[in-house]
Design a protein around this nucleic acid. Sequence first.
DNA 1: CGTTAAACCGTTAACTCC
DNA 2: GGAGTTAACGGTTTAACG
Length: 285
Amino acid sequence: MGRAPCCDKDNVKKGPWCPEEDATLKEYLEKHGTGGNWIALPRKAGLKRCGKSCRLRWLNYLRPGIKRGGFTEEDDKIICTLHGSIGSRWSVIASQLPGRTDNDIKNYWNTKLKKTLLPGNSSCPKSENMSNETTNEIRHLNLQQFWASIPTAETYDSGNSACFDTNSNALPYSSESNVQNYDSNGLVPDPSLIISRSMQVSGFHTSGSGSENYSKTSSQDLSGLSTSSTLALENSYGLWSGINGSVKEDGIMHMDFGCESHDDEFLNGFGFQEDTRELAPYLGN
DNA sequence: CGTTAAACCGTTAACTCC
DNA sequence: GGAGTTAACGGTTTAACG
């Protein structure tokens, strides 16, 4: 006996969505939100689709602020770097690329990046496949972005994909209008601050090199953030131990990366050491 | 602790282009 | 008709809830 199907398969439509269905779903969600229940949603909205299909359609296609195609070189670097570090945790990678969906990134990786960047079909963009310049660039980018990406309780990106409060009727996306900009002098935050800050947000700027503005929201906005991405961060990027689960007496941050690995040498090359003393030069300590 | 729903990701059907 | 691309499905894992 298998698991019970999520819906009555005889009475649901499958396959590509037509414009009418899209319009119906969009209109319903804009009016009523999800109501915290995707499964009941299609019936309420008058759609002959299963809730899972509606959710996917909304998140991957209809949701406002969605970006499709047009990946930049910087997007490529972020994807390659993160994929090299954490593997195919597409939702985590997507959380670093505002407006991108896990599905989109996964497709892009499988159809383009994997072929162009990993000719040896390696799981990691190892140095032998790249020029030194490129490798160094990615290393630097990775460090900056990894540290910068550790969110503060006040930061998340306006266009992020993963803001979704299942307990409210709020639509599962963040509202750009609630976002204020502030200057972030120095992309790499103090590690002690990093750790003391709550990892409760799902999205944050990762692009650029230090002079960009970051975004912050009111605390109210944080309630709408994705729990899944929060957990994804915690699960993927490690368990933080020590004071407040973070920094030990020696002031060194000890990290236990829970991700399967991939290639220790590679990770070290990208700054993923267990002991962040090695990262001091990058962290400005 | 069992059940249910959401989230996630690998796979593939469907489509487009050459 | 084969290759490339993308949207969607299916199955599994995770989280939430009673």
